[in-house]
Simulated assay, not measured.
Amino acid sequence: MTTNPEPGPDGASGEHSPGALLPLGGADEDAWLAEAAAARAFRAAAETVPGVRAGDCRVVPLDATAPAHRPALPGSRLPRGPVRVRIGVTAPLDLTSPVPKTAEAVRQRVLAAATGQLGLDVGAVDVSVDDLHTVPGDEAEGR
């Protein structure tokens, strides 16, 4: 199997890599979730916001002193405690819904997926709106 050292389409390092292992449960539990699985759930949650298309998603320790630019090695375990989710999206160019409102809706959906579906302790969600796109049908209306 050949792996790619660059982040793959799911944001995990290596084409088939599950990424780092994320802590679930308390300190006395040995429960972990692969970063790629969490990223998949977070992208799906983000895309429940109308018109949003999710892109890269990373999960890093919440600790502000941790190097933000360096992804964890595949298979390594993040330290126990809250994590930070960083997700990039493209948002609809919609004059009735400002971009900050859309970003906040994405943040809330990701938080809901973290607690409701995954049981992951997420302390922060950083949403990056990387691009805007027109919604099909808007061109016909002259928007």
Score class of each variant (00 low, 15 high):
R143D: 13
R77A: 10
P136M: 06
T90F: 13
Q108F: 12
D30A: 12
A54S: 08
D10F: 08
G11D: 01
S17M: 02
D138C: 08
V49W: 03
G55C: 03
T65I: 10
G26T: 10
L24Y: 05
P74W: 00
V60F: 08
P9F: 09
M1I: 13
E139W: 11
P7Y: 02
E35W: 00
L78T: 07
S97K: 15
D63S: 11
E6M: 13
A113H: 09
L22P: 02
S13T: 15
P18D: 06
T90K: 10
A66I: 08
L21G: 02
F42E: 04
T3Y: 06
R53K: 15
L33M: 06
H133T: 02
V135A: 09
T48V: 12
Q108K: 09
H16N: 12
R40Y: 12
G123H: 02
V52S: 02
A38R: 01
A39P: 06
G123E: 01
R109Y: 11
D10C: 06
A46T: 03
R77H: 11
W32Y: 12
L111W: 03
V122E: 03
A112I: 05
D30F: 07
D130Y: 12
P71G: 04
E47W: 04
S13K: 07
R86L: 14
P9H: 09
A39F: 04
S76D: 12
T90G: 09
G51M: 06
T96E: 12
P79Y: 05
P74F: 00
A114Q: 00
A31I: 14
N4L: 15
T3M: 12
V85L: 05
G75E: 04
P18A: 09
S97L: 15
P100Y: 09
A41E: 03
L21C: 04
S128L: 14
I87Y: 07
S17N: 10
G51F: 03
G142S: 03
A114K: 00
A64W: 07
L132Q: 06
A31S: 15
V122I: 06
L120A: 01
I87E: 00
A31T: 13
T102S: 10
A91E: 04
S76V: 01
L111M: 11
S17T: 09
P7T: 05
